[in-house]
Nucleic acid binder design. Structure first.
Lengths: 169, 169
DNA sequence: GCTGCTAATGATACATTGTATCACTTCGGC
DNA sequence: GCCGAAGTGATACAATGTATCATTAGCAGC
């Protein structure tokens, strides 16, 4: 459990941390699982770490190419698929974009709150929501997948920015 | 209110009903709102009614062309956008497909349960889920959009079909 | 160190999904 | 009938995602 916990903390504080160290640890963890962390995969994760938010596959491709790589769409999608299988990256259907996950231990119930305006993504683990959904599933005889619910809206910052009538200004 | 209700009931029982009658009523309702129900729009809705489930834009296009139409992607998307604005059609991000809505009165909180295997879509209005989501939004200072949550899973039928081991073994 | 197996890559082409543009047509109000 | 706005048709294109297959890299066993 402590290994998981460490990765999670490191992801959360990656901006302030030495990115290299985080990657090395991830690499070690994946190797233990029998997975290879190759140049492509490392590069993709690095971009997502550096970005600190969500990116579409082609935005990711752009960034990789700009840093001198010769990636292709297929390569990016393969790397993303790998990280999704590892549980380190989530794909958001509503924006067709990819974001680092904070719970690398694999599939887990939870929610993604996605800001329509700035693209910020907050990952939540609200028991009330996931249990209500689960109950709804049972009621309708539907075996729901375990995974993240996507909730779109406007984040606090954008909401404040957007308000022309001043709340206190 | 009774008009809304009637449309809703008719949509629900469209398969058993006279499709033409439903369309005529929808047309009348839209006209009252100052909206035009054109040939393209009527055709798109007709296909969705006949299908009784979700279709992607290009599946819809295929069906339209097979029935002798000369539609284009743009035309289909325009018609779908029109019906979505009217609240009669929902787009599901997770499957990139479109489905008739049972609540033509406009945006409303609710859930779509989507079967991964057969594509069946059930529309639900579970207060517990939408209220839990809403509370989560408030807690995180996120102004959530009013709309349908997409929950994927496996429907009862597919679940039964898929079970190789009998339930009591 | 070799050999051979498997996983991953690179490159290309292609498939799918969605939009922009613009000339033309249709509809509804006068 | 005429006008203006809304809608259409056609074309081209943008964005997103996959299939294929020859080549390369990493690891296991010798």
């Amino acid at each position: 459990m402590s290994a998981k916990h460490t990765i999670r903390r490191e992801l959360k504080h990656a901006a302030a941390d030495d990115t290299q160290r985080v990657l090395e640890r991830l690499e070690r963890t994946c190797r233990v699982r029998g997975q290879r962390v190759t140049r492509q995969r490392r590069a993709v994760l690095q971009v997502l770490l550096a970005e600190g938010g969500a990116l579409t596959a082609y935005e990711l491709l752009d960034r990789l190419r700009r840093s001198g790589g010769r990636s292709t769409p297929a390569a990016v999608y393969r790397a993303l698929e790998f990280w999704m299988d590892s549980g380190l990256v989530h794909r958001m259907d509503s924006t067709r974009s990819f974001v680092l996950c904070e719970h690398p231990e694999g599939p887990h119930p939870g929610q993604l709150l996605i800001c329509r305006q700035c693209g910020t993504v907050i990952e939540a683990e609200d028991k009330a929501v996931s249990e209500a959904a689960s109950r709804l599933g049972s009621r309708l005889n539907f075996t729901l997948d375990v995974g993240l619910l996507e909730l779109t809206g406007v984040c606090a910052l954008c909401c404040a920015r957007g308000r022309r009538t001043q709340p206190a200004s």
